[in-house]
């Protein structure tokens, strides 16, 4: 009896948030008085499995096979489903990344198991796993629980659970076989084009977000630019917000209004129809704070709002409010931080 935790990897290395899944897995495992078994699939699986033993797993399973080198749902899912069917763990835990979510749901469907998706709190009561999860785009919380015997598939929101501290490894790594051969896998990757400057907002500890007001950039658009408003806003994201993000090691977010207006790509959108984030520090620049936006960032630890409109709803949820011109305050903030943080 155990709790299985899938350790997501990238290029043969564990994703840093994967260890949070071990932390969440231990919460469940302790509730049942069992241990945590890490499962690592793909490139360098044995190496990462060994590392998992240092992050609190009491044993680990590794499978490195040509079909698994890069993540592919169709190849990965049956391995986890077989482990659950064969070993009847109390739970299977993964971080709610794109891959983690689809694997957990696949295992639940394949084995008719309970599923609790994108949870932010976990406990064990009366032999059942109880979880809190956001619903209605983060406007409400749902308290859900597993029923009966059997495995519970759980995905956890990134940054909602603590990773165990790294310690000395104990336990051993067992090698397991793949389930599907390449011939029976119907999805084939033709190409992958990496995009420079992609954002991983959900993992970011600091986020600087811009809204519609980024178009109030006082800089003049060069002659011949087709749409001066878009140029000004794009320039403001690149040359006003980005330097602040750089000095803080943060990521750039945006409101839906800014994305819809074409100021910045959808990948940056925070809110109901974008990403839900929960950084330590969220700096909202020229964002009024519509309900849709609040839904995506309200669990941030410290929220700073900078807006010229003192009545903007964003100030109602901020810890610190600065009324004024973003184009004066943000550069001043960047300069101050550079000086104070010695960068």
């Amino acid at each position: 009896m155990t709790v299985l935790v899938w350790i997501e990897t990238e290029g043969g290395k564990a994703k840093p948030t994967s260890w949070e899944a071990v932390g969440a897995g231990k919460l469940i495992a302790d509730g049942f008085g069992v241990g945590v078994t890490a499962v690592v699939l793909g490139e360098n699986a044995a190496g990462v499995a060994q590392e998992a033993l240092k992050f609190g797993a009491s044993s680990a399973l590794a499978c490195d096979d040509p079909t698994l080198t890069t993540y592919r749902f169709e190849a990965y899912a049956p391995i986890l489903s077989k482990l659950v069917a064969d070993r009847s763990p109390k739970a299977l835990v993964a971080v709610a990344t794109a891959a983690g979510r689809e694997l957990a749901a696949a295992v639940a469907a394949d084995t008719d198991s309970a599923i609790l998706s994108e949870v932010v709190e976990l406990s064990v009561a009366d032999g059942q796993v109880v979880a809190t999860r956001p619903v209605y785009a983060g406007k409400l919380l749902s308290q859900a629980a597993s029923t009966g015997e059997g495995t519970v598939c759980v995905t956890i929101r990134a940054r909602a659970f603590k990773a165990p501290a790294e310690g000395a490894a104990s336990g051993s790594v067992e090698t397991i076989p793949a389930v599907l051969a390449e011939d029976s896998i119907r999805t084939k990757v033709v190409s992958f084009e990496a995009e420079a400057g992609t954002v991983n907002l959900t993992d970011a500890a600091i986020i600087i977000s811009g809204g519609r007001g980024m178009a109030n950039n006082p800089k003049d658009a060069p002659a011949g630019v087709e749409n001066a408003e878009i140029w000004k806003a794009q320039d403001a994201f690149a040359n006003v917000l980005q330097p602040l993000a750089d000095v803080l090691g943060g990521a750039i977010g945006a409101s839906r209004a800014a994305v819809d207006a074409g100021y910045i790509s959808y990948a940056h959108q925070v809110g109901q129809t974008g990403k839900t984030v929960s950084p330590d520090l969220y700096i909202a620049c020229a964002i009024s704070g519509a309900i849709q936006h609040q839904a995506g960032m309200r669990t941030s630890k410290v929220i700073v709002a900078i807006n010229k409109d003192a009545e903007a709803p964003i100030f109602k949820m901020a810890r610190y409010g600065l009324v004024g011109d973003v184009f004066q305050i943000v550069p001043a903030l960047t300069a101050e931080l550079k000086a104070r943080l010695g960068k």
């Binding site: 198991s113 609790l116 308290q143 597993s146």
Partner: peptide, 9 residues
Amino acid sequence: RTVVNAYSN
């Protein structure tokens, strides 16, 4: 296998 016990604000 899964039940919602309650919703809350």
